[in-house]
């Protein structure tokens, strides 16, 4: 896996004078250093408690961005459907593990299944994968701009299913009392334990993504991105490759969804709106296409920007929320103006 910052730091420690001179023109080195320093400073400054929360949000977004980069960056299929698979994973976890006595509440009732977390998590991943197979077979017929449009359609359909299939999802009321992970009598109810679990999941996702992208399979995907028809001419079943990476990516999003549902212990359709999908694509582009490290960096930069906005001191209290959104938007526009290929990316969209 490419970790440019580590290589730079090793060079710097071996030959500080020479490396520093080289690094002056190495933009990526400084970007990496800045974001990581910013993350460390943020954690120290805000204390462990909030850093754990921000770390959990980062890890969930990082799983999503790494998985989406497999499709958008490595394979060249611009999809905004990812939030749908994220939602499917979250809802699968919610429906299977929620133990609220809904019949006692005065709102929509759904069956209470009471599965344990670790039994439900593979199902979250599997259901997202199954839906991806069905959707992917249809999507394989499309490419380029039309692909964006149909993926947009899927995100809208998924949201509406979450909102309107009330006998299963409780519609707008959402599902609460979702199970936290437990092994024997040890419940991951602390934020630190949960962060550890999410980071382990992220590590697994990174390893799978790295393995895929450094294998011959990954090289075919890169070839598809560069020229799909030429790849076909060389005898590769392009549709199979595209379907496979689509399903793998969706399963990773399902994993993120399952973790998200358990972390929040409450899900409703508002968490899976199309806007979130667009933000996710922004993170992938911000970090850099076709780079796993870029996805991690993009997610880190985004979460730090958004959460960092909470500490801007000069906004009037009555307009604090709107002000943060405006500042965040401007920063993202400026980043894209100066760095359209993303923080550590090599390819433009």
């Amino acid at each position: 896996m490419e970790l440019p910052i580590i290589g730079d730091i090793i060079r710097l420690s071996r030959d500080p004078k020479d490396s520093l001179r080289l690094s002056r023109s190495n933009l990526e080195f400084w970007v990496n250093l800045l974001i990581i320093s910013w993350a460390v400073a943020f954690a120290i400054w805000q204390g462990v408690g909030f850093a754990i929360t921000v770390g959990t949000v980062f890890a969930i977004w990082a799983i999503l961005s790494v998985s989406l980069n497999l499709v958008v960056g490595f394979t060249g299929l611009l999809s905004v459907a990812h939030i749908g698979f994220f939602g499917i994973g979250a809802y699968a976890m919610a429906i299977l593990t929620s133990d609220a006595a809904y019949e006692q509440l005065r709102t929509e009732a759904i069956p209470t299944l009471g599965w344990p977390f670790f039994a439900a998590l593979p199902v979250s991943v599997g259901v997202a994968g199954l839906v991806a197979v069905v959707v992917g077979i249809a999507f394989n017929r499309f490419r380029d701009d039309i692909y964006v449009l149909v993926s947009f359609g899927f995100a809208v359909i998924a949201f509406n299913v979450f909102l309107n299939w009330r006998s299963l999802t409780r519609g707008a009321f959402g599902i609460h009392e979702i199970e936290r992970p437990a092994i024997g009598g040890w419940v991951f109810d602390g934020e630190l334990e949960f962060l550890a679990l999410v980071l382990v999941s992220l590590a697994v996702v990174i390893l799978i993504a790295w393995f895929l992208m450094t294998s011959s399979f990954g090289r075919v995907l890169t070839a598809i991105r560069e020229d799909e028809q030429a790849t076909e001419v060389f005898g590769y079943q392009v549709t199979h490759y595209k379907l496979a990476i689509w399903v793998i990516s969706a399963m990773m999003a399902g994993l993120a969804g399952g973790l998200f549902g358990s972390w929040t212990t409450f899900v409703d359709p508002n968490s899976f709106v199309l806007m979130e999908s667009i933000l996710l694509v922004s993170i992938v582009i911000l970090g850099g296409l076709a780079t796993i490290w870029g996805s991690l960096l993009g997610a880190m930069a985004f979460v730090l920007l958004e959460e960092g906005m909470r500490f801007l001191p000069f906004l009037p209290s009555e307009f604090v929320g709107q002000g943060r959104q405006v500042v965040l938007g401007i920063l993202l526009v400026v980043l894209m103006l100066f760095r359209p290929q993303g923080l550590v990316g090599r390819y433009k969209l």
Partner: peptide, 12 residues
């Protein structure tokens, strides 16, 4: 670019 990103920690 570096100056721009440097603004963030400064704001913090």
């Amino acid at each position: 670019w570096v100056a721009l990103l440097g603004v963030l920690p400064a704001l913090a």
